[in-house]
Design a protein around this nucleic acid. Structure first.
Lengths: 133, 133, 133, 133
DNA sequence: GTGGTCTAGACCACG
DNA sequence: GTGGTCTAGACCACA
């Protein structure tokens, strides 16, 4: 239940999953949802490591992956910045979503469930939560 | 692209994922979809290991998990059998599906995608494939 | 001047360039030139680290990059293997070569040299070395 | 895509490479190609730093390197000037070109590519671009 | 045995 | 100050 605010980002990490993956995914999500603006400076590797009380190498690994995905850019001696290209973000989002959806459909198919079954579940779930759960 | 038929089951394994998980999931799938009938005998650990050319311990681990899920039962001196209770299978299927769906919705939400976006993607995909691609 | 033979590979490392890059490039080269056969097992991370007397993490970083390039595959608990797909190797080689050539042509252009100048230099060089230098 | 005109020179810098190297190379290129004439005054360190909005130390480092290469001279109280010796420029160009070519040939060799392969690629590329692409 | 993750702490290049 | 590379050494999951 570690919940941390660092600059305009907030992180929640637990120790049952690789830390660098959690940082990666939460940073990705913040960028994809626009919670951190295009062109903005990310927290520095050291700063983030200190705040989350983890090793800088772990943060760096996540940051390298973000850059490989085209979501951030490093500027020597200045820090890490969110890409200022909306196209990069959009195409990344689309690609990842497609990957997630396809693998989800495979999972469902492996249980013998059809798209109708899924829609039904979602409708029920929405109704339940709409009722104030 | 290793594709193997063992008794009434067929397996497809690749080495970039935990082997025991793949066996587990593919056996689960066969039971959930009725590809192997309720009450039927599963291949023995040794037989399956030999056919797939993997370590028996790896198969064993998958079988233990299946039994813990209530999908199979061991009978002393006879081997491992698919449960003969349709209720077990049904409830397992529902639980797992709910788990998959919830985690999928979380993934989508982390990318800032709504249920409408997902439906649109699916419709397009279905159309594409329906056209004979 | 460290020169090392490890299995069918040989490495030569110096400390004026990132070690992981040197390992990466020399392993790439061995695969591209067929010095290690498709499908063959690479030295394990630990083994290579021990032979080259460097840290396993450094080797691992190079290996991760190789896998990202599609030149190797990891098999859990078994080790790292050269891809068995000749297409992967061929396309990797082509892409990388194109990248090298393009950037070389830019360098030459920045010095105001034309393709003819380059050919002339090469012809002279070949002649010199053919003369037994 | 920062593109800047400073006096008779123009610079294009990105932040994913050492800034001082980019300035060095682009200044070199301008001198080698005669875009700035022999004996001409270079922009002052301060002026260039201001225009490119980078740290003066960074520009200084590039200028020191240029002088070490014999391409420029500092004159007390007057500034930095392009050398007025065509021989200096010519020999520098030849040396650097040789260095580039040799290292390029090594790269190609590490991929198992011969001079013929390279020529073929170049011919195709030229054809493609000649067609008006 | 294999690879994967993480820590602590060092030193370097760049701005 | 920033990120980049490396070491030494620990613990984990998988086969």
């Amino acid at each position: 239940m570690e919940e941390q605010q660092v600059g305009s980002l907030h992180f929640q990490i637990d120790f049952s999953q690789p830390l660098y993956e959690q940082i990666l995914e939460q940073a990705r999500s913040a960028i994809a949802k626009g919670e951190i603006a295009l062109g903005d400076k990310m927290p520095s590797v050291r700063e983030l490591a200190q705040e989350l009380r983890i090793n800088p190498n772990t943060v760096m690994r996540a940051y390298q992956e973000l850059e490989r995905d085209g979501l951030t850019e490093k500027r020597r001696g200045q820090g890490t910045f969110v890409t200022s290209s909306p196209e990069h973000v959009a195409s990344f989002r689309t690609d990842l979503a497609a990957k997630y959806i396809d693998s989800f459909l495979e999972q469902m198919d492996s249980l013998g469930l059809t798209w109708n079954d899924i829609e039904k579940y979602i409708r029920e779930k929405t109704a339940r939560e709409g009722d104030g759960l």
